[in-house]
Every structure is written in structure tokens, then in C-alpha cells.
């Protein structure tokens, strides 16, 4: 017996599950030394991470992921003026040229991690800094300011150190945790590190199945108590390959 009532759709009340924003920042060094293969690799690697990030976000009802890109060379600029929801995010290829005003980038980032524009309730922001050199400006004051902001302090901060000319101490100051300074010695490493960094958003927002600590492959202790990120089980932090150096 056909039954019209059974086949009609009656909406349940209520809305989607309440979620929190998660702000993800790519901070990309676009100085002259990044020209050529390096920036091309970065462009390709980040672009290829978008789809997996979108897929992961789709499976996560507890977070709404927003992505923004900040480039720095001579000066620093936001690539988009507003946070872009991951489902709408597209990568605009970056070009390299100029000096390394990393401090300027920290200043712009700090302005965005202040409340407002940051909301009261959120998941820890994730900041991924990619650099192949040393700051040419006086970065210290701006980094200090960033790290003293509540959301700056809470942010999971990762640095990808490209090649051998990097001042890793600056990157360490930024991450507050040696484990989160990833060394990329070649294009393959760089792609691997970027891909891994892109998955940190899902670890932070909806940590997947957690494994017992004792069974982790690398049971290195997490340094840097001032860094929220230190408490997460990131698993699988990629290791650089030995060999070719740029």
C-alpha cells in the first residue's frame, strides 16, 4: 500500500551542529632567494594540499576551517583580505623577489590574531611559516608581540626551513618547539613537509583516533610547554631526507 505520509519529507527542527572556526595561516617567504624552483615547489605543494584539506574538513562537524595566505619579501601582504572558508579556497601562485621582511609579516599576523577580528570562541589557530633565509628587518619586537597575544600563544606554530641558509634559531623562536621546525633539503622534502603541515588543522580540530603514547613510532618527548601544539599527538612528523642540498 503506497503511503503518502511515509514518503513525504518532514524536516526535523534545529540547525547544524554548532562548530568553532579554525584559522589556518600560510606565511610564505617570497624573498629573492626563493626565486625559481623553491617558490614553484611551494606553489605546487600548497595547491595540491587544498583538496585533501577540504576532504578532511568535510568529515569534521566540529570545526569550520578558514585559510589565509600572508606573503613577505620587501614588506608583507595578505593575499586575500579576509579569511577564506576552506571549501572556497584557491591558491594564487606566489612570485619571489625582494628582501626578507619577516618581522613585517609577524606584525600583520598579530593584527589578525587580536580580538576582533578573531572571534571569542575558536579552535587553536595553525600557523605554518615557510622560509629559506634570515629576516632582514628587526623581527624580534613583532614576534614578541605575536607570541604574547592570547591567540598567538595558543596557536600551533610550525616552521618549514627550506635549504641550508635559514636562521633556524629564528624559526625556533617562532615555534617554541624544536620538533615543529621541519628541515626541507630538497623539493621532495618540501612537498612532504607542506603536505604534513596541511594535515595539522585536522589534528587540532578533530583529533582522529588517538594512539597510546607507548606505541608511537617516535616517542620523542615534546619540548616547549608554552606551545599548545606540544600537547598534541601529531604522529608522523616527517623527517628530512639526507642528500641534495639547494
Amino acid at each position: 500500500m503506497a503511503n503518502e505520509e511515509m514518503e513525504m519529507e518532514f524536516e526535523r527542527p534545529g540547525a547544524a551542529l554548532a562548530n568553532r572556526p579554525l584559522h589556518f595561516f600560510w606565511l610564505v617567504d617570497c624573498s629573492g632567494s626563493m626565486f625559481g624552483e623553491k617558490i614553484a615547489t611551494v606553489n605546487n605543494a600548497i595547491q595540491s594540499c587544498i583538496k585533501p584539506m577540504q576532504d578532511a574538513a568535510e568529515n569534521n562537524p566540529n570545526a569550520h576551517l578558514f585559510i589565509r595566505t600572508l606573503k613577505f619579501a620587501t614588506g608583507a601582504n595578505w593575499v586575500s583580505s579576509n579569511p577564506i572558508p576552506v571549501e572556497q579556497f584557491v591558491w594564487d601562485d606566489l612570485a619571489a623577489g625582494g628582501v626578507t621582511d619577516m618581522g613585517k609579516a609577524f606584525e600583520l599576523l598579530a593584527a589578525q590574531l587580536t580580538i576582533p577580528p578573531m572571534s571569542d570562541r575558536a579552535l587553536p589557530p595553525v600557523i605554518v611559516l615557510l622560509s629559506d633565509g634570515q629576516p632582514t628587518d628587526n623581527y624580534k619586537k613583532n614576534l614578541d608581540k605575536l607570541l604574547h597575544l592570547p591567540w598567538g600563544k595558543k596557536a600551533v606554530r610550525i616552521a618549514i626551513s627550506i635549504g641550508k641558509d635559514v636562521d633556524d634559531d629564528v624559526l625556533l623562536e617562532f615555534t617554541g618547539n624544536r620538533e615543529y621546525v621541519l628541515q626541507a633539503n630538497n623539493a621532495e622534502d618540501l612537498t612532504k613537509m607542506i603536505k604534513w603541515a596541511s594535515t595539522v588543522a585536522s589534528v587540532v580540530s578533530a583529533p582522529g583516533s588517538q594512539e597510546p603514547i607507548s606505541q608511537q613510532a617516535d616517542d620523542t618527548s615534546m619540548a616547549g610547554d608554552n606551545n599548545t601544539g606540544g600537547a598534541y599527538d601529531m604522529g608522523n612528523i616527517p623527517q628530512p631526507s639526507a642528500g641534495v642540498v639547494w
Partner: peptide, 24 residues
């Protein structure tokens, strides 16, 4: 509970009062 109520059973005022939902 999630499927019926579309909210976590422990996420009330306590969760709402927390700004940064980190692992702690």
C-alpha cells in the same frame, strides 16, 4: 545523543565559556 540531539552531551555552559578549545 549526537544523532538525536545534535549537540554533545557534555557541551553546555562549560564549553561555551572556553575561548580556545585546545587539547587542555
Amino acid at each position: 545523543f549526537y544523532m538525536f540531539i545534535v549537540n554533545h552531551p557534555l557541551e553546555g555552559a562549560q564549553e561555551a565559556s572556553i575561548k580556545c578549545m585546545d587539547i587542555h
